[in-house]
Design a protein around this nucleic acid. Structure first.
Lengths: 169, 169
DNA sequence: TTAAATCGGATATTAAATATCCGAATAAAG
DNA sequence: CTTTATTCGGATATTTAATATCCGATTTAA
C-alpha cells in the first residue's frame, strides 16, 4: 500500500502555485527546478491536476499554470485522487464465490464483510485528507518559517512568474 | 494507492482457519483450493502471516497452519501489516530541502506539514482496521449465511483438516 | 531408517509506477 | 498576417514493485 511519489510533488507544486501573486502563472519547468526534481515527470503530475480541474494552464510563449480555484477549496484528497486515482485501495475479487464451498451470486447481494470493513477504513482516510486544504498547509508553513526564508521565496517567485495572458486565465 | 491482492487472500484464509475445529490444522494447498487461487502464491501469504505471529505452522507429513492466537486478538490491520508491510503509505522525501529556496536541515526539526497531514489520515485508516477482528468478521458471516452453506463448509473442513502433531501446535 | 509430505526462502514473470521524449497548440514578435 | 519561439499534452521507454512459480530444507509418520 503505497502512495505514489507524484502525489508528494503535486501537493508541493500546488502549494507553490498558491503562493504566487494574483494574475500570474508559473511554468512546469520552473516548478521542477524549484523542487529539484525531473521536469518531465513533474509536468506529468501537473497535467493530472489540470485534468481534475485543480489547476488551469495556458500554452505557448509565456504560458504556465495557476490554481483553478481558491486554496481553501482544494483538499489534499482532491490532489491525491487526481494523481493516484479515486478507486478503492482494497479491490474485492469476490473469492467467496470461488471453490467447492463458493457462495451463489444471489447470496452475494450485500458486499463482502471484509471488503466492507476496508471501505469504512478508506472512507476514514479520505475524510481526514478532505479536512485539510491547501490554505491550511500554507498557513502553517508561513507561521513556522523564518522571515528571511519567506522573503527568498517571494523574490524567486517575482523573478520566475509570468503575467498570464487574458485568454489563458 | 493500492492494497495488494495478497491481503485479500490472507484475510479469507485466516477466516477459514478460524472456522476449523480445535487442535486441527489445514495445509496451504487446501486453502488455495478452497478459494480457487494459485497454491504457491497463497503459500507465500501464509508465510507472511506466520512470520508476523498470526498463524503457527508445522512442517512435514500431516503438517499445516492454524491460528496462533484467539480470533478476537487478530485485527484486519494485523493481517494487512503482515502482508503489505507496516511502513507509511506516504513517503516524504523532504523535497522542501531541495532547490534554490530549500530549507536548511536545522529548520526541519518538525515534520513537513504535508507529511504530517498524511500521517494523521493513515492513522485513522489503521485505527479503523484495528477495530475489526477476525471474530467480528466470522460472526457477521455466520449470521448472514444460509444454514446449508455453513453445513457444507463444516463438511469440507472435516474432510480436509488434519490433527496437528503435539509439537507442531 | 526411510520416504513421503509440507513449509520456507530463492527465483521467473508480469503489471504498475517512474521517467522521458516528441508533436500539437498558443501567443508574441517581426 | 506570417513566422518563430515557447509551453503544454499525450504517447512512448525504462525501472521498480507486485504477482506467480519452483526447488531445497525440515519434519513426521510409517
Amino acid at each position: 500500500m503505497q502512495i505514489s511519489k507524484g502525489v508528494e510533488w503535486a501537493v508541493h507544486a500546488a502549494s507553490l502555485l498558491n503562493g504566487l501573486p494574483a494574475g500570474r502563472g508559473l511554468k512546469a519547468e520552473a516548478m521542477a527546478r524549484y523542487h529539484d526534481v525531473p521536469a518531465a515527470y513533474m509536468a506529468k503530475q501537473l497535467q493530472a491536476l489540470s485534468k481534475a480541474g485543480i489547476t488551469k494552464s495556458s500554452r505557448g510563449a509565456h504560458g504556465g499554470y495557476r490554481l483553478a480555484k481558491p486554496a481553501d477549496e482544494i483538499s489534499l484528497w482532491d490532489i491525491t485522487a487526481a494523481v493516484d486515482g479515486k478507486g478503492p485501495a482494497f479491490r474485492c475479487t469476490e473469492i467467496r464465490q470461488n471453490g467447492p464451498c463458493g457462495l451463489k451470486p444471489k447470496d452475494c447481494k450485500q458486499a463482502c464483510q471484509i471488503a466492507a470493513a476496508f471501505a469504512v477504513a478508506e472512507q476514514a482516510f479520505r475524510d481526514s485528507l478532505e479536512a485539510v486544504t491547501l490554505a491550511d498547509i500554507a498557513g502553517q508553513v508561513v507561521n513556522d518559517a523564518q522571515p528571511d526564508h519567506l522573503f527568498a521565496i517571494m523574490n524567486w517567485l517575482n523573478a520566475e512568474t509570468v503575467p498570464l495572458s487574458d485568454k489563458g486565465l
